[in-house]
Nucleic acid binder design. Structure first.
Lengths: 238, 238
DNA sequence: TGACAGCTGTCGTTTTGCTGTCGGTTAACT
DNA sequence: AGTTAACCGACAGCAAAACGACAGCTGTCA
C-alpha cells in the first residue's frame, strides 16, 4: 500500500457536478503538492477513476446521472478499495449520510471549509496508509496540536479552543513559518461563500492570543502580526 | 498461535453476500489497524481463506451458494481452527448457531452495532490467543471498565449501566482521549441503518454523566463536551 | 394474559456559549 | 503629528447542547 506523504504525490479525484466547487478543491490540493483531477458526473467519475487510479476520492452525493452511492458501489464492484469522502448538501432531506454505513470513509456537509476537507482527507489517507499509522502532531516551539485528540498545549498547559479558533490555529501552524494574509485565512478556514468581509480573522487571532500567548509573562508570543500583510506563527529567535 | 495485538496486524476475513455490509465491517476493522478482506459468496470465502490465512472470520449464514455452515465445515475439514463469528438474521437459526459455537466461536444477530461486533472479535481473539488470556480492563483516571465482567467503577463505587450506556461509554473510553462526534458514536454504537436524526447520543451522555460524574462533589467530570465537535472522556490535567 | 418494571427514544423547553458586528482605542509607520 | 491598520471590549443573535417529561416497547412474573 502506498505511503502517501513521502514516496509519491497523492492522487486525488474530485467528483462534483458544480465545476467551481470541484475546481476549488482540486486547486487547493494541487497547491499542497497533490495530483488532482475532476469529474462532473457519475459516469465521468468512473472513467477517470479507471484511468487515473486515485489514492482518494471526494464524492458529491448529488450528481446528474448516477448518484454518489451508485458511483461508490460501482467502484467497489470493480474491486478498488480506494477511500472515499462524501460531500452532501446541508438540508437535503433524508441525507443523514451515515457515511460509515454506506461504505464511505468520512463525509462533510456543504458548504464546507477547505482546510476542514483537506484535514479529513489527510486523516483518511493516514489511516489507510498501513500498519504504522502514527498520530499527527503539529508543533511550533512549545506549542503542540494533536490532530487526533484535538489536544492543544502550550508547554504542558492544556488549552480549550473553540472550533474556529482551532481551525485558524491549525492552518497557521501547518503553514508555519509562512506569513498568511487575512484573506488566505478567511478563504481556507471559513466556508466557501462566507459573506462577511469583516474583521473576524483579527478577532479570532486576538482571542487565540489571549489563550496561548497570554498564559503567563514567562512565555514568548508565538503569533506575530506582520503589519500590512497578515499573521504568522513562529518562534522568534531574538 | 499469534498474539493479536502487538506482534502483527490482525487478519480478518469478512464474508457477507451484501457488499455494503461486508465493506462496512472491513472499513471499521481497518480503522482499528487490522488487515481485512471481504468475500461475497461461500466459494469466494474459501478461496480467500486459503490465500489470506485469516486470524478470524466473520461469516454470514445466508450466502448465495454454500451457506455459512457449509463454509465452516469445509474450513474445518481443511484443518484450520480459525475462530469464526457468525452473523444471522433476526429470527433465523439462532439456536442452531448457538450449538455450533463451540470453543472460541461466537455469533451476532443482524442488524448489529459495529462496536458490538468489534468487541466480540477482540474477545474471541483474546481467548484463542492461548491459555494465558488476561482480562480486558479499560481505564481512564479512576474510571474502570472490565469488559469480561461488565463491571464499571468510578473509584470503588460500582456503577449500574444500561446496555446502551455501557456501549457508549466503552466506545468513548476505548478511543480516549480522542474527541468523537455524535455521528461517529451513532454509527458505531447503534445498529447500522438506525434511522434517527435525533438527540439520542446527547441523551445517553446526559444519563451517563448523572451516573458517573455526579457521584459526589469530590470527583472531577470525565466526560467533556467539545462544543461543535462532540464528546470526549479524558482526565483534564490541571 | 394482564400488570408491572426498566430501557429507549421523541418532543419541546431551557441553558449555554460560540460567533460575528460595531466602534472606540491603541500601536505602527511616515 | 497625522494617517492607517490592528486590536479588542461589549453585545446580541443564534445554534448547539442539556435535560425533564413522557410514551412505546419488551421482557418478566404472577
Amino acid at each position: 500500500m502506498k505511503h502517501y506523504e513521502h514516496v509519491e504525490r497523492v492522487r486525488l479525484l474530485v467528483v462534483d457536478d458544480d465545476p467551481p466547487i470541484a475546481d476549488l478543491v482540486a486547486t487547493v490540493a494541487r497547491y499542497e503538492g497533490w495530483d488532482a483531477v475532476t469529474a462532473n458526473s457519475g459516469e465521468e467519475a468512473l472513467r477517470r477513476a479507471g484511468e487515473f487510479d486515485p489514492d482518494i476520492v471526494v464524492l458529491d452525493l448529488m450528481l446528474p446521472d448516477l448518484d454518489g452511492f451508485g458511483v461508490l458501489d460501482r467502484l467497489r464492484a470493480s474491486g478498488t478499495m480506494v477511500p472515499v469522502v462524501f460531500l452532501t448538501a446541508r438540508d437535503g432531506v433524508a441525507d443523514r449520510v451515515a457515511g460509515l454505513t454506506r461504505g464511505g470513509d468520512d463525509y462533510l456537509v456543504k458548504p464546507f471549509a477547505v482546510e476542514e476537507l483537506m484535514a479529513r482527507l489527510r486523516t483518511v489517507l493516514r489511516r489507510s496508509a498501513g500498519p504504522a499509522f502514527q498520530r499527527s502532531v503539529l508543533q511550533v516551539a512549545d506549542l503542540t496540536m494533536d490532530e487526533d485528540t484535538r489536544e492543544v498545549r502550550r508547554g504542558d498547559k492544556l488549552l480549550t479552543l473553540t472550533p474556529t479558533e482551532y481551525e485558524v490555529l491549525r492552518y497557521l501552524m501547518r503553514k508555519s513559518p509562512t506569513v498568511l494574509t487575512k484573506a488566505q485565512i478567511l478563504d481556507h478556514v471559513w466556508e466557501y461563500g462566507f459573506g462577511g468581509r469583516s474583521n473576524v480573522v483579527e478577532l479570532v487571532v486576538s482571542r487565540l492570543r489571549r489563550k496561548l500567548d497570554g498564559i503567563d509573562d514567562g512565555s514568548v508570543p508565538l503569533i506575530h502580526t506582520v503589519r500590512g500583510v497578515g499573521y504568522v506563527v513562529r518562534q522568534v529567535t531574538e
